[in-house]
C-alpha cells in the first residue's frame, strides 16, 4: 500500500528510481496504481482549490 502511494507521488513530480519502476511494472495489481493515482490527483486539485480560496480571502 505504502509502496503504491510512494510510486504515485514520485510520478506526480516525475522523478523515480529505475529499479522501483521495474518492480512497479511487474506488479500484478495495476488497478491499485490507477485508483491511488486518481485519488492523489483529486487531492492535488482540492489542495489547489484550497490555496486559491485562501489567496482570495487574505
Amino acid at each position: 500500500m505504502w509502496r503504491v502511494i510512494k510510486s504515485v507521488l514520485a510520478a506526480l513530480i516525475g522523478v523515480q528510481k529505475n529499479q522501483q519502476r521495474e518492480e512497479d511494472f511487474s506488479s500484478d495489481k495495476p488497478l491499485a496504481f490507477v485508483i491511488a493515482a486518481i485519488f492523489v490527483a483529486l487531492l492535488f486539485v482540492l489542495l489547489l482549490i484550497g490555496v486559491a480560496l485562501l489567496a482570495a480571502k487574505v
Partner: peptide
C-alpha cells in the same frame, strides 16, 4: 550513469 534521484528531486 542512469539516474541520481537526489539531484532530480532537488532540481524539481
Amino acid at each position: 550513469f542512469h539516474e541520481n534521484t537526489l539531484v532530480e528531486v532537488l532540481w524539481t
